[in-house]
Amino acid sequence: MSSSSLHAAAGVAPIAPSPAAESPVRTGSAAGSPPAARAGSSAVSGSAGIDPRGPRFVAALTAVLTVVALLLGTGSAALVVLAVLAASFGLGVVRGVTGTWQSRLFRRFVRPRLAPPDELEDPRPPRFAQLVGLVISGLGVLLGLLGVGPAIPVAAALVLVASFLNAAFGLCLGCELYLLGVRLRAARANA
């Protein structure tokens, strides 16, 4: 129930339940059902799946923009670049990562040159990552507008680390942070 409140806050419409996450899936000899064993992957490769290289390309462009922001320092030019980043993350949160301008570039210019992907990815994890990016860059823009100049490069550096890890290593920020959030909320509910 805590996960549904998280998604309500993120504006993520509930998508078809995925066996891996929404309900326990038993596989192997105990359940003796190979179809159930494949249910997890079929949920991923369903029509809702996206090319996993898309979000990584989006992250790479995001990383380039944060480098530009860092090189511009603490002035209004850096603030504008960070605001553009925040707006892009906003698009990614509202429409999913495939709704961003970076993803459009990927589909238009990059994917036609690539072989078809081996596997498709669930669109929710990258969307969660977009939300994390929106919060960090949004705070940077807000503090920058309030005159706290150093907040701009700090926010840009944080977004750079996250987007670089995503682009270069395929690190899924949602997987690393989501559980901590669930634990914190549960601890607070018990307190």
Binding site: S3, A21, R38, P52, E119, P125, C175
Partner: peptide, 21 residues
């Protein structure tokens, strides 16, 4: 133990499910 916002969970699920099958 998986979460819904987690792509490696799906991949790992497929690996372990195949071994169990």
């Amino acid at each position: 133990l998986s979460s819904e916002v987690c792509t490696p969970c799906r991949r790992t699920h497929a690996v372990l499910a195949a071994i169990a099958a």
